[in-house]
Simulated scan of single mutants.
Amino acid sequence: MKNFFLLFERWTTLAALLGACAMLAVAATLGMFQIITRFVLEQPAEWTEVLIRFSLIWMVFLAIPAAFRQGAMVSVDVLYRWSPPRVRRVLDYVVALAALALIGVIVWFGWDYAKRGGVQSMAGLESVSMFWAYVAMPVGGVFSAIGILGNLMDPQRLELENAQ
């Protein structure tokens, strides 16, 4: 069961990270398009700014699960380094539970916010609902929860190993 979940987590985190990379590519492409239309063609495309902003929001919420999986969660590094192995495992659970509580709040209120914002339309793109921008919070939160549980089952402390 543990190996199945870790395989599932690996695939979901990879999918989220690929989505984050795609959103970064979209933002960069739209940024270049905006520069060309504004300064070369002198015909600004206002809709690109809105899409850049929302693609960056999606990028952040889809990249967070990879950081959680690598152990880049809020922790007390000095306490962790000085603690015996049994206490370290307790700290792992405390940090994971705190992170899951935060992600739970983000998912719960993010979904509520997305539902409420569904009646709004994007400025510059009146035919597109704001729901699609706000739903990045619960989607990223679900991926993050899977990454947190994966890190709890198979700890990776890459931020501690790379710390100076």
Score class of each variant (00 low, 15 high):
Tyr93Ile: 11
Pro84Trp: 08
Phe8Leu: 03
Phe109Leu: 03
Ser121Gly: 12
Arg88Thr: 08
Ile36Pro: 01
Ala22Ser: 15
Arg86Ile: 14
Tyr80Pro: 05
Glu49Asn: 05
Pro85Gly: 05
Arg53Met: 04
Ala20Met: 04
Gly140Lys: 10
Pro138Gln: 03
Ile36Thr: 05
Ala72His: 04
Val74Thr: 09
Thr12Pro: 09
Arg88Gln: 15
Met1Leu: 06
Asp77Thr: 12
Gln120Thr: 04
Trp82Thr: 11
Ile36Ala: 01
Phe109Asp: 00
Gln34Trp: 06
Gln34Met: 10
Ser83Glu: 08
Asp77Ile: 10
Ala99His: 02
Pro138His: 01
Pro44Gly: 10
Ala20Gln: 02
Tyr80Ala: 06
Arg38Pro: 02
Arg116Val: 14
Leu102Val: 11
Leu14Tyr: 12
Val76Glu: 09
Ala98Asp: 01
Ala22Val: 13
Leu160Trp: 08
Arg88Met: 13
Met1Lys: 08
Pro44Gln: 07
Phe4Leu: 11
Ala28Asp: 03
Gly117Tyr: 01
Ile57Leu: 15
Leu6Phe: 03
Phe68Tyr: 10
Glu46Asn: 13
Met1Trp: 09
Gly118Thr: 02
Ser127Ile: 00
Tyr134Ser: 08
Arg89Tyr: 07
Thr48Leu: 07
Val139Trp: 04
Val90Ala: 15
Tyr80Leu: 10
Thr37Met: 13
Tyr80Gly: 04
Gly71Asn: 12
Phe109Lys: 00
Gly141Ser: 02
Phe61Leu: 14
Cys21Met: 11
Trp58His: 13
Ala28Asn: 07
Glu9Gln: 10
Thr29Gln: 11
Ala101Asn: 02
Pro84Leu: 12
Gln34Gly: 07
Ala136Thr: 03
Val87Ile: 15
Phe109Asn: 01
Leu51Glu: 11
